[in-house]
């Protein structure tokens, strides 16, 4: 019913029609007010909030995706399964979860470079990469990367060969895309742990490339 109420409001869409304007304007006070109200109604366990924050600040992050990429580099059979149907592979690794229910891995090659965006909101493969960085959620990235991806890559200090095609994936559904960057030269024979250190967060979004760490790092 509440949904219909929103629909009926659409013709007006006036700013002060929105209930959120009843809350204090300062966002820190806003969130405290909502937490206080919901806790008072028995709808929030404050310890659950702490657990969620801890999860995304310390447990789930780009190291998860880096392990997938490193394994794909090190194990051709794994790579083939990942590219054919990622979901069972991701589940076997214990990386299935919220905002990663439907994963497709896309591989960079000598001829194609992949970049991921969500122009309509900020969809992102949370179980593999964690919460998105600020730039991924920014208007500038969402607006520009579909129209001028090479100029956006220049903001990251990255220049692609002109004959390498750019393929930008706009995440408009519940499918989440993981870029498999090209394996850096000089990493032959490296094990999974060593390879993981080549895989940056941005290389799995497509705004960076994997890099061979300096010896000893």
């Amino acid at each position: 019913m509440g949904c219909l109420r929103i629909i009926r409001r659409m013709p007006h869409d006036a700013h002060d029609d929105h209930p959120h304007s009843l809350l204090p304007p300062d966002p820190a006070l806003r969130v405290r007010a909502l937490e206080t109200i919901l806790t008072g109604k028995g709808l929030i366990d404050p310890a659950a909030l702490d657990a969620i924050i801890d999860t995304y600040q310390h447990r789930i992050g780009p190291q998860n995706g880096a392990r997938v990429v490193a394994r794909a580099w090190a194990d051709p059979a794994f790579r083939a399964r990942l590219l054919a149907d990622a979901d069972p592979v991701i589940a076997e690794m214990g990386l299935y979860g919220r905002q990663g229910e439907h994963i497709v891995a896309v591989e960079n090659t000598d001829t194609v470079h992949n970049i991921v965006v969500c122009t309509l909101c900020s969809c992102y493969p949370w179980p593999l990469l964690g919460i998105p960085p600020g730039w991924y959620k920014s208007d500038a990235y969402r607006a520009r990367v579909v129209r001028e991806p090479r100029k956006v890559l220049a903001d990251f200090g990255l220049t692609l060969p002109q004959d390498m095609a750019v393929r930008v994936w706009d995440s408009t559904a519940e499918v989440r895309y993981l870029v498999i960057p090209m394996r850096p030269a000089g990493t032959e024979g490296w094990d999974e742990e060593a390879l993981m250190r080549c895989v940056t967060r941005d290389s799995m979004i497509g705004t960076g490339v994997a890099a061979r760490p300096e010896a000893g790092s």
Partner: peptide
């Protein structure tokens, strides 16, 4: 677009 440090 303003890049940020690697990691979480």
């Amino acid at each position: 677009v303003r890049p940020e440090p690697d990691g979480i």
